[in-house]
Design a binder for these strands. Structure first.
Length: 362
RNA sequence: CCAGCGGUGACCGAACGGUUAGGUGACAGUCUGUAAAACUGUUUUGAGCAGGUUCGACUCCUGCCCGCUGGACCA
């Protein structure tokens, strides 16, 4: 594989690379590329994590990157998710979340064994230097900078921010140092922490690599955006809005039902979750691909799109009606997620999913 | 530790010693070949906790808990 091919594989379907030059230099250096992506154990795994993030990992694996998934149990604990109960978080991390990520990787033809899973609990116990790294990073970040980066967790500043919350950003950056990461991967919501990482890690002792940061856009939620606030924030998928998110293990009927209820304005190609999903999930950010629409003759008959631009053009001119797009997208997802559903048919995992729902009060 | 103010249903947020605030969100229906918008309906009588006064307390009193603001401290 040429350098250019690797670059393309690593960066496709991403919104931002900090920086492309650094990434190119890293690839050219021939050194092992140590990737990581971290997840809070805060709820069920939706498409943003299961398809966007895990699909990207499939790309990385193909490019020869060493991938690591960090199960951020302590971050979850600090952030008071899952009731802030340590035992529940640890259980969910190993028995639900990790399995859901493996299930997601299966949707991309992997088995899960290509990736290394590490929990915070394990990392901190086996790396005593982490405490030192945490303090070193803390010394490089001002309070106001730290506070600004905390909005990554969707917190309203000035309300109930407690001390533990302030530990979050430096802890996240210290993770990168301790795991010796040179390719940090996340959604755009994590960019502030990664920018701090790039700046702060340079300044601490030890000649640590400045990590390349690679960010994917957040996929749109299915519910309607706030009418007078059509911005990224109101569009993004959220675990806390059940109808805005499709989960990796949703049944075919749940998938059809959620997509049927999705916001689907005719002709509107800008703020449109359906097209957003077709673009980033079906076409995986590429211009070309394949997307089949099945519909009755009276509505135009079946059609297979091979270019994303054609989908957009037909949608804008109403040659492609929202309902037909919804049906096609539902069926595409149902098929794509089949391996994940199969994984959760295994009794052990099925049981874990039920218990997880219990913890979440669903 | 001291003082002032505050703690209302998923969220925001009023009034009042005795009757359903209201809004948002969510859910259902009508309308559109989808959804949204609009309209209609539904959403466990809820009051930080424990007592007390009263025929009756979310509303008054006492104690406690939690939060905010200020003071004290400046090691």
């Amino acid at each position: 594989m040429t350098i250019e091919e690797k670059m393309k594989l690593i960066t496709r379907n991403c919104q931002e690379v900090l920086t492309e030059e650094d990434l190119k230099a890293l690839i050219e250096s021939g050194k092992p590329i140590n990737h990581y992506i971290g997840f809070e154990i805060s709820g069920m795994v939706h498409l943003g994590t299961g398809l966007m993030s895990m699909g990207k990992i499939a790309d990385f694996i193909k490019a020869g990157v060493k991938c690591k998934i960090f199960l951020a149990d302590f971050h979850t604990f600090l952030n008071n998710k899952l009731g802030g109960k340590w035992e529940d978080i640890r259980w969910a991390s190993e028995h639900y979340f990790k399995e859901a990520l493996i299930a997601s990787l299966k949707c991309y033809g992997l088995t899960g064994s290509e990736v290394e899973f590490v929990s915070g609990d394990e990392l901190y116990k086996t790396h005593p230097e982490h405490w030192q790294n945490f303090m070193e990073i803390g010394k490089q970040v001002t309070l106001s900078r730290n506070l600004r980066s905390i909005s990554i967790m969707g917190k309203k500043l000035g309300t109930d921010v407690n001390m533990a919350t302030l530990f979050y950003p430096p802890l996240q950056v210290a993770d990168i140092v301790t795991m010796d990461i040179n390719l940090a991967h996340a959604g755009m919501d994590q960019r502030k922490a990664h920018v701090i990482a790039r700046e702060a890690i340079k300044k601490i002792p030890g000649n640590h690599a400045t990590p390349v940061a690679i960010h994917q856009n957040l996929i749109a939620g299915l519910t309607a955006p706030n009418v007078d606030n059509k911005d990224e924030e109101s569009l993004k998928m959220s675990k806390s809005k059940p109808n805005s998110a499709v989960f990796i293990h949703d049944t075919p009927d749940e998938i059809r039902d959620k997509i049927k209820k999705a916001y689907g304005p005719p002709k509107e190609t800008e703020f449109n979750p359906l097209l957003n999903w077709v673009k980033t999930l079906v076409f995986w950010g590429d211009e070309v691909g394949e997307f089949k629409i099945e519909r009755p003759e009276k509505f135009g008959g079946n059609i297979t799109y091979t270019k994303y631009a054609d989908v957009v053009a037909d949608y804008a001119s109403e040659k492609l009606y929202p309902t037909d797009l919804k049906n096609a997208l539902s069926e595409w997802l149902i098929e794509k997620l089949a391996p994940a559903r199969a994984h959760f048919e295994i009794p052990e995992h099925k049981e874990a999913l039920e218990k997880m729902k219990g913890l979440l009060g669903i």
